[in-house]
């Protein structure tokens, strides 16, 4: 930089007041979520003997792994200032497509997986095209994709679930096996979370997603290719949803067109609890994962504590509103 190397001006000397921001690895939202989770877990350990057992913990984690992958996708979309209502349906579509290709068409399972991933990318590209080129709102476009993907899943299976049987031990191993004692699905989720969290924090390209979500006009004026970012994010979201669908197939050995119903709302809840904002520009992957874990934990607690099933529906909503309200109040105090 060559500006003002020879400071021959009479500008008042830098009067900046700088105090050290507290150097925590996580933002405030993530730290508080982690704390809440720890407290809840501790309370549960005392309240029911069945909680702090290996099997219960693993079950809960496996149970949330598919929702977790979808939440990673949804978080990225929300940070960009968009929304993807089709994630659950693309999951079902991918699960069914891979199943149909492997069983009815008789393809090699890995080839089926590859084709399914391509199909997911196409679905995402379609959404991306309509949002960037045609200018439809993401809400409407992904709502449409939600119906289309789900419909395709029904058409492919004619409504009945498809049973894979034992198509390929390797494929089943991915969905049902463990490595070093940890179920593969959990490992995959952790891997994806780490990768994308790193990318969102450090990659220059992913950083642009934050800029676009924070102020699209300013991003455009700053030379960021907004259309390309949007397109890419929707493709990524569909790809991750497709991956989740394939893993669902691997886990259960059954392709059902009814999989993933309601996943999009759970993903939005998890992402928002974890710090994402519906207006874009904010949110982290780790936060979203913590959000999903918190909701799953509370649901688990309800079952173990034998709370009536009717309460379980309320849980996600209550946790969501509580988390967002607490954060809003804390935010208010900080900035005032």
């Amino acid at each position: 930089m060559n500006i003002m190397e020879k400071s021959e001006t009479n500008i008042s000397s830098s009067r900046k007041i700088k105090f050290k921001p507290f150097k925590t690895l996580f933002s405030i939202r993530e730290a508080s979520l982690a704390t809440i989770i720890l407290i809840t877990a501790t309370a549960m350990t005392f309240l029911t003997p069945g909680f702090m057992t290996r099997s219960n913990i693993l079950t809960t984690l496996i149970g949330l792994s598919m929702d977790g992958i979808i939440t990673v996708a949804m978080t990225i979309v929300l940070v960009m200032g968009g929304i993807d209502l089709g994630v659950g349906s693309v999951l079902a579509f991918a699960s069914v497509l891979a199943g149909v290709l492997a069983i009815k068409v008789g393809l090699n399972i890995w080839l089926a997986v590859f084709i399914t991933l391509l199909a997911s990318v196409s679905a995402g590209s379609l959404v991306g095209y309509f949002v960037t080129r045609i200018g439809l709102s993401p809400f409407i476009t992904t709502l449409g994709m939600m119906s289309i993907a789900r419909g395709l899943a029904y058409v492919l299976t004619k409504g009945s679930p498809l049973s894979l049987g034992v198509i390929s031990p390797a494929f089943d191993y991915i969905g049902q096996g463990s490595f070093l004692g940890i179920p593969n699905l959990i490992l995959i989720l952790i891997l994806l979370v780490l990768i994308f969290d790193f990318l969102m924090r450090r990659s220059a390209v992913f950083r642009q997603i934050y800029y676009v979500g924070s102020n699209e006009k300013a991003a455009r004026l700053s030379g960021i290719n907004v259309d390309r970012i949007k397109f890419g994010v929707y493709v990524l979201s569909a790809l991750l949803s497709g991956l989740a669908g394939i893993l669902t197939l691997a886990r259960f050995g059954v392709a059902t067109p009814t999989a993933g119903v309601g996943a999009e709302l759970r993903a939005i809840a998890g992402a928002v609890i974890g710090g994402a904002s519906l207006s874009g520009g904010e949110g982290t992957i780790i936060g979203a994962l913590l959000g999903v874990i918190l909701v799953a934990l509370v649901n688990d607690a309800l079952i173990l504590l034998n709370v009536s099933v009717y309460w379980q529906s309320l849980v996600t909503g209550i946790v969501l509103i509580a988390a967002v309200t607490i954060d809003m109040l804390a935010h208010h105090r900080r900035t005032s």
Binding site: P49, S55, N56, T59, I62, T256, A259, I303
Partner: peptide, 24 residues
């Protein structure tokens, strides 16, 4: 005790059943 998956979802019922199992 009565419990189950809230929705028509395989993942949910499997998870609930396994959580019940851990209670022995």
């Amino acid at each position: 005790q009565y419990t189950g998956a809230n929705e028509y979802d395989i993942n949910q019922e499997v998870t609930v059943l396994e959580q019940v199992i851990s209670q022995k």
